[in-house]
Design a protein around this nucleic acid. Structure first.
Lengths: 174, 174
DNA sequence: GCTTTAACCGACCCCGTTGGTAGGATTTCC
DNA sequence: GGAAATCCTACCAACGGGGTCGGTTAAAGC
C-alpha cells in the first residue's frame, strides 16, 4: 500500500475541519466520533498536521483545531507530506518535491553505472506529485458534501461496464 | 516508501534481460553479479515474473531466463504489478488497473457517507497507473545503455532552477 | 478555586510484512 | 556422473504500522 492509514485519517480529519466554519475550534473528540476513528491515535495524526502549520489549536474547554488557511489554499501534497513524510517511490529517491531528484541512485561509484530504474521512478514520482499538487482541500470538502447529500445508493449493484464508467467520469485532473 | 525492493530488483532484472540478446538464456547468477544483488533472493523475485508470464526459463546447465516478449511490448505496469501485487494508494482501494474502482470505501452502510478521500486516492492512482502504463521496458533498456555509455557526470552540480529543469525535461510522459 | 474539557506528550506493545538465508530437490548439458 | 542451473519450501530477524495507556498542562465556566 502506498499510503498508510495516517494519511487516510489525516486527510479525513482535514476534510472534516474544512466542513466546519473557520476560526471556530472543533474538538478531536467530535471528529473521532464523526469519522469513527480512535481518538488517541488521531492525536498523533493531528500533531503532525500542526507541526506542518496546516492546522492551529486552542487548549482547554471549548478548545479544538481549525485550518490555518482557507481550504482553497491548501494543496493535498502539503497534507500528505506532513502525514507521511517525504513521498518517494524508492528508498534512496528523495526529492525536494519540485521534481528535482537529489539522489542519483548510483550503486557503484567507480563504474559509471547509473540505475536503470531511475527513469521509471522519476515518472511515477512525477505522476504522484502532480496529482497531489493539483488537488486542493477545498475540492475534497466539496466532494464530501456532494457525497453525503446524495441519497444512499447501494454499491456494486448492477455490476458491469456501465456502472464502472460513472465514477471515473467524475474524476478529472488525475 | 511506495515500492519495496522487490520492485527495484525485479525491474533491474528485467532491464538486464532486455539488454541481452533474446532467446538466449541468462543465468540468475550472472545477473546477481552484474547488479550486485543476493542470488537467493533474486530467485524469489524472478519467480513472480515467471508466474506472470513475463519471462521464460530453461533449467539445467546453460539454462537461465529470457524475456517472454520483446521489450517494446512489455509495459512497466505489468512488471510492477507482478512484483508488488495490486498497486493501490490505500488499503481498500483495489482496482482492476483500468481506472475502475472496485471498493466504494464506505465505512458505514446505513449512513450514505462515502469516504471523502476517495477523490484524492483515485487521482493518485490514476497518476501512477498512467506513468507505469506509458513506460515500456524498452525505454528503460535504452536509458540504461545511454547511462552506462556516458561518462560519469556528477549530479547536483550547479544547483538551481536551471539544473532542476534539466532532469525533468529528460522525462516526458510521466 | 474547583471541576470539566480538551490539547499535549511519551512510553509501550502487538503483529504483519520485508528482506533476506538455508537447504534441498530436480532438471539438463557435457 | 558431475556440474550448473532452476525450482521449492521453510525459517528467521528486524522494522514499521497501528494502535493503547497514562499522565500533564491549559483554558472556561461555575
Amino acid at each position: 500500500m502506498i499510503f498508510s492509514s495516517k494519511a487516510e485519517y489525516g486527510v479525513r480529519l482535514m476534510v472534516e475541519l474544512g466542513r466546519q466554519s473557520p476560526e471556530q475550534p472543533t474538538s478531536l473528540k467530535a471528529i473521532a466520533e464523526a469519522e469513527r476513528l480512535p481518538l488517541a491515535y488521531l492525536e498523533q495524526v493531528v500533531a503532525r498536521l500542526k507541526r506542518a502549520g496546516l492546522v492551529m489549536s486552542a487548549r482547554g474547554a471549548h478548545g479544538g483545531y481549525w485550518l490555518a488557511r482557507p481550504a482553497e489554499q491548501i494543496t493535498m501534497d502539503e497534507v500528505v507530506q506532513a502525514l507521511e513524510g517525504a513521498i518517494a517511490p524508492m528508498e534512496c529517491f528523495l526529492t525536494d518535491m519540485t521534481e528535482r531528484v537529489l539522489c542519483s541512485h548510483t550503486h557503484e561509484p567507480d563504474t559509471g553505472q547509473h540505475c536503470a530504474t531511475k527513469l521509471l521512478w522519476m515518472r511515477v514520482q512525477g505522476g504522484i506529485a502532480r496529482s497531489l499538487q493539483t488537488t486542493t482541500l477545498a475540492e475534497l470538502v466539496d466532494f464530501s458534501r456532494r457525497e453525503s447529500a446524495a441519497p444512499v445508493r447501494p454499491v456494486a449493484a448492477s455490476a458491469g461496464a456501465a456502472s464502472a464508467a460513472s465514477p471515473a467520469a467524475a474524476v478529472p485532473a488525475g
